[in-house]
């Protein structure tokens, strides 16, 4: 150890002699900046254009579409517009391609009118246009990119692993999602006219993107919060209960005891009262005309 320490000490001593020179501070600062930059480049989410291999032409096409369909609320450069009465549209810098793909891909955007919540409607843009818009918004700042099938599918797992994933996904779903989306994803109400939509007809990709970006009222379930494979497990659970046969028969909307009560009254009691009427109307007497006049109206 001593043998090694001696030359190091000598180098340190030599460097130390220069530490009060005028240029030393500048040099240290430059070094600091260089390392910070290098670290940032190494760890920061790569910008979308590199990841998706999108080219400038696609971004340019997306910008054209953006200026026509989105800029009115989100600003010419996606910076968001704040009007006197409140925010017209939020800034899109850093929301990422996944957010665009979800909002535009499910028909929520462009909105028809401001409201509590963007309503789901028919898609306005073609898939290529959605891709171009996503590319453009992704170029505004780094954000989550559109997931691939490897992300939201568990097909690459073995059968046993898939089964385990579904069980785990069910637990995660009941712990994190059912409070708003209901126990089988039928959706539910939120305060002030907002609602958690039904998940029954939502595609796997959009489910994944929703968790990743937290659209509308939804929380963001970042990858640190729910890991990517757990997100896929939740999606797998939803698919699995959707694929299950209706074990108990018709699901009555899958919204719990309210519709059950409705059926008990309308079908059950209504039907049985109908039968009671039928039984009482069939008198034991042979001549019905004699009987029919007696029944009070």
């Amino acid at each position: 150890m001593r043998l090694l320490n001696r030359p190091l000490n000598r180098v340190a001593g030599r460097l130390s002699r220069h530490r009060r020179r005028p240029l030393a501070g500048l040099l240290v600062m430059l070094l600091g900046l260089f390392f910070t930059g290098a670290l940032y480049a190494a760890f920061a989410p790569a910008s979308a254009d590199k990841q998706n291999g999108t080219d400038d032409a696609e971004i340019a096409q997306g910008r054209e579409l953006f200026l026509v369909g989105c800029a009115f609320c989100h600003g010419q450069n996606g910076e968001g517009i704040t009007s006197q009465t409140g925010q017209l549209g939020p800034s899109l810098v850093g929301v990422g391609a996944a957010a665009v793909d979800f909002q535009v891909g499910t028909g929520r955007m462009p909105m028809v009118q401001p409201g509590q919540q963007a309503a789901v409607k028919d898609k306005v843009y073609t898939d290529d246009e959605v891709k171009a818009l996503s590319a453009y918004v992704a170029s505004l700042g780094p954000g989550p990119s559109i997931p691939t099938e490897d992300d939201y599918s568990i097909d690459h797992l073995s059968k046993d692993e898939q089964r385990e994933a579904i069980v785990k996904g069910g637990q995660l779903f009941l712990a994190n999602c059912s409070a708003c989306h209901n126990f089988e994803g039928s959706g539910g109400a939120m305060p002030e006219g907002k609602k958690a939509p039904s998940l029954r007809k939502t595609s796997d990709k959009h489910l994944y993107e929703a968790m990743l970006t937290g659209p509308q009222q939804m929380d963001v379930f970042s990858n640190g919060n729910i890991a990517p494979e757990d997100k896929a497990a939740i999606i797998a659970y939803l698919n699995s209960i959707e694929e299950n046969p209706g074990y108990g028969g018709f699901s009555l909307g899958g919204i719990g005891p309210v519709s059950e009560g409705m059926f008990a009254w309308l079908l059950g009691i209504g039907g049985l009262i109908g039968f009671a009427y039928w039984i009482a109307a069939h008198s034991a007497r042979s001549e019905k005309t004699e009987h029919s006049e007696e029944t009070p109206a």
Partner: peptide, 13 residues
Amino acid sequence: DPSKVTAGSQPDW
């Protein structure tokens, strides 16, 4: 599980 709940939690009619 006391930590979980579901939307549409209603009792029987």
